[in-house]
Measured scan of single mutants.
Amino acid sequence: QAPETKIVDKSRVACDGGEGALGHPRVWLQIPEDTGWVECPYCDCKYVLKGSKADAL
């Protein structure tokens, strides 16, 4: 199944896999201003900063 994409309001987000005990260790991710998105290294969930150029795609 394809990784999930989430639109977020802040450039710093936490990801834990979203499945409680079945998820992964919580990691904090920083969305770079130049790209407007970041992917979780564990679950490949893509976080897109709302209003960024990546959000316009």
Rank of each mutant, 00 (worst) to 15 (best):
G18P: 13
S52N: 02
C43T: 01
G23L: 07
R12C: 14
E39M: 14
G36N: 03
P41N: 03
G18V: 05
G18I: 05
Q30S: 11
S52R: 00
L49H: 10
W28S: 00
C40Y: 09
D34V: 07
C43W: 04
K6W: 09
L57P: 10
W37Y: 12
G20C: 05
I31P: 04
P25F: 10
D16Y: 12
L57V: 11
V48W: 08
G20D: 06
E4Y: 15
A14R: 05
G23W: 14
V27E: 00
K53M: 10
S11A: 12
D44N: 15
K10H: 12
D44E: 12
T35I: 13
T35K: 09
W28I: 02
E33R: 10
A54Q: 06
L22R: 14
G20A: 09
L22M: 14
I7H: 06
G18S: 06
D9H: 11
E19S: 11
H24I: 03
A56I: 14
V38D: 01
V48M: 06
P41K: 04
L29Q: 01
D9L: 13
E33T: 10
Y42A: 10
Y47H: 07
W37M: 07
G51T: 04
V13R: 01
Q30R: 10
P3L: 11
E39G: 10
P3A: 11
D34T: 06
C40M: 09
G17Q: 04
G51A: 06
P41Y: 05
E4H: 15
Q30W: 13
Y47G: 11
D16E: 13
S11F: 08
G36V: 05
Y47S: 02
V38G: 01
R12D: 10
A21P: 12
E19W: 09
T5C: 15
D55M: 00
A21V: 11
R12L: 14
T5Q: 08
W28N: 00
V38A: 04
Y47M: 03
Y42H: 07
I31S: 01
Q1I: 12
K6Q: 09
G20I: 03
A2V: 11
Y42N: 06
H24S: 02
D44V: 12
G51V: 04
G51C: 14
D16H: 07
T35E: 07
S52A: 03
E19V: 11
K10W: 10
C45W: 15
A56R: 12
P41W: 06
Q30V: 13
C15R: 00
L22H: 09
G20Q: 05
W37S: 05
G18A: 07
Y47C: 14
L29H: 02
V27H: 01
A21S: 10
R26H: 02
K10P: 02
D9C: 13
P25A: 09
V27R: 02
L57D: 10
Q30M: 13
D55H: 01
G36R: 02
C43I: 01
R26Y: 07
E33H: 08
L49K: 12
W28P: 00
D16R: 07
D9T: 14
P25L: 08
L22W: 10
L22Y: 10
K50Q: 09
W37D: 01
A21R: 10
L49G: 12
V48N: 01
K50L: 06
R12T: 13
L29T: 02
A14M: 09
A14W: 13
A14C: 13
V8F: 03
A2C: 15
T35N: 02
G18T: 05
A2Q: 13
E19T: 09
H24Q: 04
K6H: 15
D16N: 05
L57A: 14
G51Y: 07
C43E: 00
V13A: 01
L57G: 12
C43K: 00
G36A: 03
G17L: 01
I7Q: 03
I7D: 02
S52F: 03
Y42S: 09
I31C: 07
G17D: 05
L49C: 14
A2T: 11
P25G: 05
Q30A: 07
W37Q: 03
K46I: 14
S52W: 01
V8K: 03
C40K: 08
A21D: 10
E39A: 13
A2D: 10
P25N: 06
K53W: 09
D44W: 15
C15H: 00
K6V: 15
K50W: 04
L29A: 02
G36P: 02
V8G: 01
A54M: 04
E39H: 12
I7C: 07
D55T: 00
E33K: 10
D55S: 01
W37F: 13
P32E: 06
V48P: 10
G23V: 09
S11G: 06
C45H: 15
L29M: 04
E33N: 06
A54W: 00
V13T: 01
C45S: 15
A21G: 09
L22T: 10
K6M: 12
V38I: 12
Y47A: 04
S11P: 12
P25D: 05
G23H: 09
K50D: 10
Y47I: 06
C43N: 00
T35P: 10
C45A: 15
G23I: 10
Q1M: 15
V38N: 03
G23E: 06
E33Q: 11
V38R: 01
V13M: 02
D55I: 01
K6C: 10
D34W: 08
E19K: 13
W37N: 02
W28K: 00
L49Q: 10
A14I: 09
A21I: 11
A56V: 14
L22P: 06
Q30P: 01
V13I: 12
E4N: 15
C15W: 00
C15V: 00
P41G: 02
K53S: 09
G20P: 03
P3E: 09
K10M: 09
C45G: 15
D9R: 09
G18D: 04
Q1D: 09
S52L: 03
I31F: 02
H24R: 05
G20Y: 04
V27D: 00
A54P: 04
K10Y: 13
A54V: 04
H24L: 03
G18W: 06
D44R: 15
W37T: 03
D34H: 08
D9Q: 09
Y47V: 02
A56T: 14
K53Q: 11
T35Y: 05
C43G: 00
L49P: 14
A14Q: 07
V27C: 09
G36L: 02
A14K: 08
K46F: 07
P32V: 04
E19L: 12
Q30C: 13
E4G: 15
G17E: 03
Y42W: 10
D44P: 14
P41C: 08
P32D: 11
S11E: 07
W37C: 01
E39P: 01
C45R: 15
L29W: 05
A54R: 00
Y47Q: 04
R26I: 07
P41I: 05
D16A: 09
E39I: 15
A14E: 09
K50Y: 02
V8P: 05
G20N: 05
L57W: 10
T5F: 15
C45N: 15
A54K: 03
G18K: 10
V38E: 02
K6L: 11
K53E: 10
L49D: 14
A2N: 12
Q1E: 09
T35A: 06
L57N: 12
R26W: 08
P32I: 06
I31L: 02
V27Y: 03
D55L: 01
R26T: 05
V27K: 03
P32S: 06
W28D: 00
D16V: 12
D55Q: 01
C15L: 00
G23S: 14
C40H: 08
P32W: 05
C45Y: 15
E39N: 12
G17T: 02
A2R: 14
K10D: 10
S11Y: 10
T35F: 05
V38Q: 01
G36E: 03
Y47E: 11
K46W: 07
C45T: 15
G36F: 04
V8I: 06
A14V: 08
H24N: 03
Y47N: 07
D55V: 00
D44K: 15
G36K: 03
V38K: 02
P25I: 12
R12M: 11
Q1H: 15
E4V: 14
Q30Y: 13
P25E: 10
E4S: 15
K10C: 11
